[in-house]
Amino acid sequence: MKCIVVTPEKTEIDREASFVVVPLYDGEYGIGKGHTPVVARIGAGELRITSADEEKASFFIEGGFLEVSGEVVSILTDRVLLPEQVSLEEAEGRLQKAKELPQTNSDLAAMKEKALVGARGMLLAARKWRKK
């Protein structure tokens, strides 16, 4: 099974994987070999890739889409960060900012919701990685 992570700037990750866990909009979603074809929305949080030789790698991804077809897992996302690039302070600052956004109409409210989801996902991932 191939796992490809693409951002608008470039193809970040392209490797063989045996199991992939993707943070979807409503929780984590695991994909193993022979998974049914899926298109899904990604929230924000930790992406875990277990490679063919059982080696595990973690990344923070935010926004975008997951597409599983055949033996290819493609992840289109806005950004990919390594665990050491995620800081607790930045995540907290983002959450604070997201909370202050206006929500005067439904579209603006949706944007605020998205910012909140991104900030919370980042905070959660940052807390987890800090503990380690």
């Binding site: 909009y25 049914t36 899926v38 298109v39 899904a40 055949g70």
Partner: peptide, 15 residues
């Protein structure tokens, strides 16, 4: 496209 039948999460509209 490879013409596979996709499952959409949560729904095609939302995506």
């Amino acid at each position: 496209s490879n013409g596979a039948e996709y499952e959409f999460l949560p729904s095609p509209e939302s995506i």
